[in-house]
Design a protein around this nucleic acid. Structure first.
Lengths: 233, 233
DNA sequence: TTAACAGCTTGTCTGACAAGCAGCCAGGAG
DNA sequence: CTCCTGGCTGCTTGTCAGACAAGCTGTTAA
């Protein structure tokens, strides 16, 4: 029976946990600036470097802002980045988990079909992605097409209304993105493939516009899984 | 057009990113010790405190070990904690309201139903979880029951064969676990609820044994979503 | 074989300095 | 007299260097 497991924890981690609970408790109001590092160090009775390490942990968890640019602005309590941090963590875990690509694709097919089934209308953002893709087909610009492709699927995913669904789809998409770009770059005639993908996207949107959600979901299934099977016609 | 957005990033974050890609690339072998902080500082040309902040970020992401206890052992490249880090990050997003609980539960329902549909047989590990739960019901031991409950669902999820599916279900389960425990602790008559949950688990196993996978999936849907709707009978 | 010792590593603190930003104050233009 | 502008002074973050305690490890002497 360890009497005080807390004492075996580095001070910086202990401070990080206490700050974390303080933030989640509302002791530090959302969107409010945190005290300065020196003030935090004094109030916790530790050195500034210890406070800095604790702040880094909280920034990695997305609970406070200010990790990405150098500025004199103090960190703020923010909740916007928590989903991003969760996405990064999930993406990392999937990457290092040596999960077969086929499993990732199968999961994505399942989720996107469900998201499309929940869709009632095609969001304007998804339509503009279609336009971007069409322009990219003209120029045979693989990267622009791919970026718009990703955005299109994510927009559709979130349009269903379930944020967890859109979130996981986005993460899966990130994990698969590398494979997809490589596949596109390896194709002999990228233009033809891009045109076919664009047509499939258009088909999904058309089906949704016609109110045929089940058909749209079916099209999406074939659109996604078709790309990852070697026998792409 | 920003010429060098990288230069506006704190050094410690830049170092963290470079270390991260080095780990994911396999430059540092899995389960191998990282160089010492002093060596890293020299090889990156930065001070030791900068390296330490970068290491804290990677530890928060679950990519390297050694964040929880104080010891002289050097951090190792480890992949075991990434799932836990993802669960924690998602849980944070949930607590903060970035992702509604109802959405997560809906997603979990969808995924678990699919996993059960892919099941051909009930794994022995899941059966032993049932036995553990039965014993916990006798003792009204909420925590033991809960642990076995979690394990049961994860075992079923992985039994379907899709590792991505099992993994994501595990992460979702991690992140919802807190709410579930709170709910169990708040119930007036925990024994009755535990008994009902156990019976529902048994029903799913029975349906799978009988080869009625669709029925089993349906039972799982009601089992999970029923628990999170206030009108639990 | 055992016990002391030296070296290394992490965790932490302190002090220092550059860069950027906000606020204030004085002085000149109108 | 009012207003604008320029510079100055703090303050805060990011980073570095040096120091020391505690714990582990390998070596050496008894």
């Amino acid at each position: 029976m360890t009497i005080s497991p807390v004492s075996r924890m580095p001070l910086s981690l202990d401070v990080a946990q206490r700050l974390r609970t303080a933030i989640l408790d509302g002791t530090f109001a959302a969107d409010a600036e945190l005290p300065t590092e020196t003030e935090l160090a004094q109030s916790f009775g530790v050195g500034r470097s210890t406070i800095r390490e604790a702040l880094r942990v909280l920034q990695a968890h997305g609970l406070i802002s200010g990790a990405d640019t150098v500025s004199t602005a103090r960190p703020r309590v923010t909740h916007e980045r928590t989903a991003g941090a969760a996405g990064l963590a999930l993406s990392t875990a999937l990457q290092v988990g040596a999960i077969p690509l086929a499993d990732l694709v199968a999961l994505r097919v399942l989720l996107e079909a469900e998201a499309i089934r929940q869709n009632t209308s095609v969001p304007a953002t998804a339509r503009s992605c279609l336009a971007t893709m069409a322009a990219a087909v003209e120029n045979a610009d693989i990267h622009t097409f791919h970026a718009a492709d990703v955005d299109f699927h994510v927009q559709l995913a979130y349009a269903g209304g379930n944020r967890a669904l859109g979130f996981v789809i986005g993460v899966l998409r990130d994990c698969i993105a590398g494979y997809l770009l490589d596949a596109l770059a390896a194709v002999a005639d990228p233009g033809a493939v891009l045109a076919r993908l664009l047509a499939e996207h258009q088909g999904i949107v058309d089906a949704l516009d016609a109110g045929e959600t089940d058909h749209a979901a079916e099209l999406a299934v074939h659109h996604i899984s078709g790309f990852y099977t070697p026998e792409t016609p």
